[in-house]
Design a protein around this nucleic acid. Structure first.
Length: 164
DNA sequence: GCCAACGTTGGC
DNA sequence: GCCAACGTTGGC
């Protein structure tokens, strides 16, 4: 598990199915900011609650899509707080066991930094030997929020042909 | 506390 | 559409 914040910039990757929520949806939001709700996995929850801090940077990844790709970047503008969608039974990710006084699930707010003109596809990521260790590319990796190293952040921007 | 059954994720 | 890899649930 990730260490506590040390103050230096840190990097993450968040997955979304574009039919559910795409980077274009984020681009259309007021202030291009949204809350990242609906994470219902404890490992990811721990990162949202404990590790992801304001100013951290995030890759926006489209899963189950054509193409599967990193499509842009965002930054964290609000650190972990209760995911209120867990308390609303009309919400898809309603969790009757989550208690508003002691929330089970957390979310953060992110703001768009840039949408890549050319997404970096999963195939391109796989073709880059230096990215072998990426959590995203590990077999069976299903974490919807995952850490990214500074080196990976740099390499992927190079592949995208843009500055971080 | 074990583990089989089940549901989900998400690449292929 | 398929299915492997996970995570969760619940009976025992």
């Amino acid at each position: 598990m990730a260490k506590k914040a040390t103050g230096q910039a840190r990097y993450w990757l968040m997955k979304s199915e574009p039919n559910a929520y795409s980077i274009d949806d984020l681009a259309k939001e007021k202030k291009q900011t949204t809350f990242w709700d609906g994470v219902r996995n404890y490992q990811a929850r721990n990162m949202l609650r404990d590790d992801i801090k304001v100013g951290d940077h995030v890759f926006f990844y489209h899963s189950n899509a054509k193409p599967m790709a990193i499509v842009g970047t965002a930054k964290v503008v609000k650190s972990g707080y209760a995911d209120h969608t867990a308390f609303d039974k009309n919400e898809k990710h309603f969790d009757p066991k989550s208690d508003a006084d002691n929330p089970t699930w957390y979310m953060v707010d992110i703001q768009l930094i840039q949408k890549y003109e050319t997404p970096v596809t999963r195939d391109e990521l796989k073709a880059e030997p230096k990215l072998e260790g990426m959590v995203l590319l590990q077999k069976g990796s299903r974490l919807s929020v995952q850490p990214v190293t500074a080196a990976e952040w740099k390499i992927i921007h190079k592949l995208a042909g843009v500055k971080p």
